[in-house]
């Protein structure tokens, strides 16, 4: 665990150093490239702003209505049996379909319990280690007209469950 947490401190500085050095060695105008990329990044954020607003409003309504608490209370009995805090179940389910919806729910957990709480850490890790299973499968398979996806879905779900289990486990040890 020590090593893993140490990685957190060093990985980003090292990655930035590596990429910039690589760019300089390849004789690229690195700052011009950076500015170009930063422009694209800014455009991306502005493009997702309406989506994010909509999803945060949706989650805000669920939270303020008391539905999320009620759902967590009702689901708790089953999810606790497999070791998953009930508040994380909506995040996990939403992530199968939509990254944005899952992000909205995770942000709600940050606001309600704090990003450094056990729930906040687990939600952070879950979203970082899983993908939108159904969304990705539909885009990729539709593009080649494949309807019989054979063992893709079981495999993808198994990997997702493994990621969720690892997230909850690691969050308890941070």
């Amino acid at each position: 665990m020590e090593f893993i947490l140490c990685l957190s401190d060093y990985l980003i500085p090292l990655a930035v150093f590596y990429i910039v050095t690589f760019g300089v060695l390849m004789k690229r105008p690195v700052y011009d490239d950076f500015v170009e990329g930063a422009k694209e990044g800014a455009r991306t954020v502005l493009r997702v702003f309406p989506t994010l607003t909509g999803l945060m409003a949706g989650v805000g309504v669920l939270r303020a209505s008391g539905f999320l608490d009620a759902a967590a209370g009702a689901l708790g009995r089953w999810t606790r049996a497999v070791g998953l805090p009930p508040q994380l179940l909506p995040v996990a389910v939403a992530k199968l379909f939509s990254s944005g919806a899952a992000t909205g729910l995770a942000l709600d957990i940050f606001r309600t319990y704090g990003p450094d709480s056990r729930l906040g850490l687990a939600a952070s890790l879950m979203l970082s280690s899983t993908e939108t299973v159904f969304y990705t499968m539909s885009i990729y398979f539709l593009s080649v007209n494949v309807k019989k996806t054979r063992y893709t879905l079981p495999g993808a779900l198994l990997a997702t469950f493994a990621g969720i289990a690892a997230s909850v486990f690691l969050a308890g040890r941070m």
């Binding site: 090593f3 893993i4 947490l5 140490c6 990685l7 957190s8 990985l11 980003i12 850490l121 952070s124 890790l125 879950m126 970082s128 280690s129 899983t130 990997a159 997702t160 493994a162 990621g163 289990a165 690892a166 997230s167 690691l170 969050a171 941070m174």
Partner: peptide, 13 residues
Amino acid sequence: AIVGPAIAATAVS
């Protein structure tokens, strides 16, 4: 702080 653990969780999945 989540970077390292996130890599570990991603490795597991």
